[in-house]
């Protein structure tokens, strides 16, 4: 058991720095709120629907997914989180999990006790707004997924998701030469897009044929970013990348 290092927290502070500036004191307050870091295997539930978690979880490395299951066993992934993302910051005020969170790949996580978050909300009003912003961003991303699912074709929706994941990875400092990790299986990609396996497979083959991306062994290489954005009708303004006082 140990606390996360500054290096491990870099993606988290980068996601904040893309939208606001925090003081050294606020930075230290966030660092000291961190509980133990843990390594978890792929496919492990971090929080389950109905749980009352006493902590929120921050991803330090790897990828996690929010998901809900329906009666016939079908699974819908409603969010993907990478290093720097809180997977359940909202469980602090909401108390009961209304969905589950599982690791997609092997992950390193840090747990942040709700008591520490409470302390921050009582002592650091600006940091409180920053944390609020982070949960609002989740809502914004959910809205975009809903629009994509409801109004885009499968081809467009898939391209949109790749755009979003690339931009998010870039913010967290996790891209290099247009490459980033997307450790999803095709089934998981289908669960995130709400598409059947066969349709996902076909849509992915069509996307690959455009030569906008390559995706192999969990690594995406962006080949033509302009084309990918156009294919996905992607406009990243919903990610609110403006560094302004919140």
């Amino acid at each position: 058991m140990s606390k996360p290092t500054e290096d491990e927290l870099r993606p988290f502070f980068a996601t904040i720095a893309a939208r606001d500036t925090i003081s050294d004191e606020e930075h230290r307050a966030l660092v000291s709120a961190m509980g133990d870091r843990r390594v978890i295997a792929a496919g492990t539930d971090i929080a389950r629907e109905g749980d009352r978690p006493p902590v929120s979880t921050l991803v330090l490395s790897g990828m996690t997914a929010r998901y809900s299951t329906v009666e016939d066993g079908g699974r819908q992934i409603t969010g993907l989180h990478l290093a720097g993302d809180f997977v359940d910051l909202h469980s602090f005020p909401l108390k009961i999990m209304d969905h589950s969170v599982a690791s997609i790949s092997r992950c390193t996580i840090a747990v942040v006790p709700h008591a520490e978050l409470k302390h921050i909300t009582e002592q650091f009003p600006h940091l409180t707004r920053v944390l609020w912003l982070l949960t609002l961003l989740e809502g914004s991303i959910h809205r975009q997924w809903l629009v994509a699912k409801g109004r885009l074709t499968a081809d467009e929706q898939m391209a949109h998701l790749f755009c979003e994941q690339y931009v998010k990875a870039g913010i967290a400092g996790l891209t290099e030469g247009g490459r980033f990790a997307l450790p999803l299986t095709q089934t998981q990609l289908g669960d995130a897009l709400g598409l059947s396996i066969v349709h996902t497979n076909r849509t992915l083959q069509r996307l690959r044929r455009t030569r906008a991306i390559e995706w192999q062994d969990g690594i995406v290489q962006i080949l033509d970013w302009d084309m990918l954005q156009e294919l996905g009708q992607f406009d990243g303004s919903y990610l609110h990348l403006e560094r302004v006082p919140r």
Partner: peptide, 13 residues
């Protein structure tokens, strides 16, 4: 079963 689901998905489009 997968083919049937995929057909339903794709027919809509």
């Amino acid at each position: 079963r997968e083919a049937q689901e995929a057909l339903a998905d794709m027919a809509a489009e």
